[in-house]
Every structure is written in C-alpha cells, then in structure tokens.
Design a protein around this nucleic acid. Structure first.
Lengths: 322, 322
DNA sequence: TTCAATATCGTTCATATGAACAAACAAGGA
DNA sequence: TCCTTGTTTGTTCATATGAACGATATTGAA
C-alpha cells in the first residue's frame, strides 16, 4: 500500500518548493533514498505529470520520430510553401545556417562539400569570428581546373563569413583516370588536405540526385553514359560525388577511382555529418543516406520528412542486389 | 531570441527519454551547462509543465498551507464525520499511528505524554519489532500513586506493541508541593528518566484543553480553583501538564513547580514533537501550540485545520499580557 | 570611435542523485 | 518446522547537476 497523500506532499516539496530529496527526508522522517523511490513512484503512477508543450508551427514530433526511426542525432524539418527545389532550397539554407550557428564552437574542423543547397546555406550564414575553426574543402573543385571553382568558392566564402581559417583542395573533384588521380594524390598539399578532411569534427554536405539537366550534368562533371551506368547499378544519388544505393551502400563503379575527395567510409567516420537536402526528386536519395547512416543530422522539408516516416523499413529484398 | 523548437526537443529528450544533460549536449551540439540553462528556461516559460495531482479525499493543499503558515514540518489533516471528540479522537489515533509507523526507525528515543488521543493512537498501532527503540514516559503518572497509573500504562502498551524497550517515570505527574517534587527529583531513577526524556529524538504529545468535567479534572489532577487561576492568567491549555497562552508562551503559575515531567523549554528542544489533537474545544489551544512552535508536526481534523488557516496572525496585542 | 553596462558563456566545485549491491525481512510452500 | 523466494531497506559509489565565479562578448550611449 502506498500513501497517495504522502506522494503528493513529497512531489510538491520536490518539484514546486525545490527542496532536495535529503531535506524532504529529514522533514518527513524518511531516508533520502526512500524519497527518491517515492518520487519515482509518483512519476510512474502519474501523480506527477510532466507535460511538454510543442511550439506552434513546428514539427517537433515528426522530427523526433525520424530521429528514433533512423537513429539520427537530430532532424530538422522546415515548412515550405511548395515542393519545388526553388522554394525549398533557400529555407533549407536558412535552417542549416541556424543549425550551424548553434553548434559551431571554436577549435573545430569543418568539412564542406558543394551544391546549390550549401550555397543557400552560406548565403544565410551570419558573420562570426571563429579564428580557430578550419573550413576544409572535402571534395575537389568542379568546372574547369584553371578557373576559380565552385567547391573552392563555397569554402572560401564560408571561411570568410565565419572568420575562420580555410584549407582548400587544389584539384578537380573528378579527373579523367585513376592514373591522374593517383598522381594528384602524391601532391603533399592535396594529401594533407584530404587527411585533415578525414579528421574533421563536422561535415556539411548536400545530398545529390543527379538527373539529366541537373547541375552536375550541366557542368559536365558526369557524362550521360556514366549516369546511366550508375543508375543501372542501383545508384539513387551521391554525397560528395560518392554514389550509393537506396540503402546507402556504396556503388562500386570505376568513377570512384577518379574522384578526389573523401569516400563514404571516411565520411561515415566523421563524428557529425550534416545532410541538407529536400524538395522534389530528393526523397529516394535522402532515404538512402539515412538508412545507410551516411549522415547524423538531417535538415529537410516537411513533405520529404513525412514520406520518410511512411515507409520506414529498409528494402531488404533490394539489399541483395547491391 | 530563444528557439522554441529546440527547447521542446531538449525537454523531450530530458524528461521523456531520460537522457542526461550531457548526452543531450553531445547530441545537439551544446555544452552541458547550456542544456541545463535551456531546461531551466523551458520550465520557466511553461514549455515544461509539471503537474502534481492531489489524491482524492485528502487535504494536501490545506496541509501545505498550514505547514507554510506556521512553519511546521508536517501537518496531517483527517476528515471526520463530526466535530465531537468521540468522533474525532479515534481517527486522530489512526492517523497518528500511521504517521509513527512511517517515521519510526530503530535506535531512537521516543517520549510519550498521555491523554485519550494518545490512547487511541496506541490502539491503532500495528505491532512492530524495534528492539533498539526506547519509549520514555515524559510525564509522571496520573491517578493515585499506589495504582498502576495512566501514563505508565500508555508507555508500557506502546513499548510492547512496538517491540521496544521502555523507560518509566515512577512518580506522580503532579504532587502536592515543590518540596515533594524536589525530593522526588533527587531519586536517581526519576532524574535519569527525565534526563533521557529531555534527549529524545521524538515526542508524541496530546494537546489538552482542560475544562470543568474533562478527564484532567475528573481524575482530580487539577482543582477547579487552579484551573480558574490558570485561565485567568491566559492559559488556553497544556502539553504534558505545562500550560501556555494563546501564543504558546508558558504560564508562570506555581503549579509548574509541582509537576514531574519535561517543561516546555525542554519539549521545544526535542527535534520532532508530534502533537495529536482535534475536535471541539481544541482550536484555541492547538493554535497556541503551533504559534509557539511547541510542536513540529500537527495531526488534526479538517475543521480545526480550516480555522487555523482563517486566522493566521499571532494575536500581537495579547502578547503584552503574557 | 571609446567606454561602461549587460548579458552570455564555460569552468570549477560542492552537492544531489540514482544504480548496483547487500542485508534484513516477510511470505509462502514443503 | 525450515527453506526458498521475493520484497523492502539502507550503503556505497560513480555520475549528474546547478551555483558561483571569472572571462568574454555584446550592446547601447557618449
């Protein structure tokens, strides 16, 4: 038998009056540990109810369910007026910037890949002063070798905005052959940058879903044929040009040997990988990324988030194929 | 600006998932101390609501208000069918017994005074086995010297029920003169018992309101004239035959020199004095006892309790007279 | 700009807390 | 009756927590 009136008194004294369990014990003639146990009981028996009010216009529970379902550290869901990339991307950028502002401490190494979403993120970033932070380009440049490239540009802008140091990867993201790649990797500067990138505390990456006509194709990074091959091998998209299937498993395609940048295994070893992606056409690749634990933090839109919850189970049948 | 969505997530993680502040910090990229402060904020801003449900048919809030108003460690209020002593006393006894069962540890010294309420308490007491507990008679016996007396009887019964040792005070509670009292106090046995009683951890006392026809008068302990004198001096009642006024101040009457038992100063020094009293005619004396901090724990009926809250203020004007 | 005032932040430290263990105990069955 | 089993109880200990402090950044005013 438990004395409900006593539970009430003790709970009031603890939660409302802020007395310590020891003080309560002395006052009511109980051992400290007994007070502790009675409080446990009070919580279990719902004498003490702890209610947490969700803020309006937020997706707290959706986020929490996604975190639990996919084992993510954090999911941030944003609301969007529509599902088109043009509507989603700026908001993803803003949310990503807010997230970064929250977690960025000094004395960190931050890897950056590239993509339109990350560009939006940097646009939304408020200036800071983090002199001991290093922003590292984790993937070679895009476009032509001789020009200021896309990837380097993002890294430079982010480092400037954050008042941080930077470390560039002076190489193309993708080269013509394994031989060229291996030669470039001999370069001390490139090798050191990649080594540093592999030791990063934090990486901010886009999640790509290449399609004919998308940025990756327009820039001529990938040929139509390569894309077709990758898709035939089960690829749903990429992170930092590393393609993976719908369960996040790497695709073994010769293109991998021509990329200068971290591979998926190295990326997975980074303690916190923040994936920022959403909008039309991204669902499958995002699902692959979270299933494969390629990212720890996901920032996405509400429609994608809802779809991710609807079909939670990894597609076991298709794993055989990968 | 505070991120309400973040407060929500952190509060959920802490209160529902039971994560530690440190774990939450690591997961969400915050310092442990920041999580602590955000949680504080969440409580303050009512994002986290802690509700404590009062048990049905109890007087939790009434008790708490009385505790706060009079600085008591604990107040226990019982419901009664009526206000007459006959209806109230058995329930007070049961409540007192339950209270004692809760706080009684071994290795304690428990003082006992006497009265019908304490008799009811002992009747309601469940047998226990507390070999290192000592029950001490804190006030001499009543009735005639040669007979087994009331006070000793209570002490004996309580010690037996609790499986405890006992220490009796082999003397009348009130004698004919100071000379006789002083002579009895020379007795080593009596002196030792009183010394032990003064060092008690716990005392259980009734709170008396003598009136013509009440037990104290019937037993011839007090004469009509003495009672009249005491009342004229402002007495509202007594604890263990020590009379006090409506603010709990001792009444300086010659009768004090004829009593064998602890005085009010000694009683106040006992860490925990449990006063058990209620019903008709007891309001003023109980109010005096709590105003004067003569008891730390009060067990009483709901009507008395409600009256005690109505008129909280010590009667300052009358303190001059005492 | 410079300064002062204020707020924010992390570190240190004493304290509060619950988990794991162990002892004592009660209940129930053979 | 004794023994087993489960319950309650306190002790020890590692951990979690918040208060106090000092450092740092930020804001507003001159």
């Amino acid at each position: 038998m438990t004395d409900a009136a006593l539970l009430y008194k003790i709970a009031k004294a603890y939660y409302e009056d802020g007395l310590t369990q020891d003080q309560i014990g002395k006052r009511f003639g109980l051992s400290r540990i007994k007070v502790s146990r009675l409080l446990q009981q009070a919580r279990q028996s719902r004498v003490v109810q702890i209610t947490i009010t969700p803020p309006p216009d937020s997706f707290g529970d959706l986020e929490r369910e996604l975190e639990a379902t996919y084992g993510l550290d954090e999911v941030i869901v944003i609301s969007t007026p529509g599902y088109a990339q043009s509507e989603v991307v700026p908001r993803l950028g803003a949310a990503g910037a807010a997230y970064l502002a929250r977690i960025l401490g000094d004395q960190q190494v931050l890897d950056l890949s590239w993509g339109t979403t990350l560009l939006a993120l940097i646009d939304a970033l408020a200036p800071q002063n983090l002199p001991d932070l290093r922003v590292v380009q984790m993937l070679g440049g895009l476009g032509r070798l001789e020009s200021e490239t896309y990837g380097a540009d993002l890294t430079i802008r982010m480092a400037q905005t954050l008042g941080a140091r930077m470390r560039l990867l002076p190489a193309p993201g993708i080269v013509s052959s394994k031989i060229v790649r291996d030669a470039l990797l001999e370069d001390a500067n490139i090798a050191e940058t990649l080594a540093l990138a592999a030791r990063a505390d934090l990486a901010v990456v886009g999640i790509g879903a290449p399609a004919p006509g998308s940025v990756v194709m327009q820039a001529g990074i990938l040929s139509e044929q390569e894309l077709a091959e990758l898709k035939a091998m089960g690829a749903v998209g990429d992170i930092a040009l590393r393609f993976f299937d719908e369960n996040g498993r790497p695709i073994a395609h010769p293109i991998n040997d021509r990329i200068i940048g971290l591979d998926l295994e190295q990326i997975k070893r980074i303690p916190r990988v923040v994936g920022v992606a959403g909008g039309e056409g991204k669902y499958e690749v995002i699902r692959g990324a979270v299933r494969g634990r390629l990212v720890n933090v996901l920032i996405t839109d509400e429609i994608t988030a809802a779809r991710l919850l609807e079909e939670k189970e990894p597609a076991r049948a298709l794993q055989l194929q990968a």
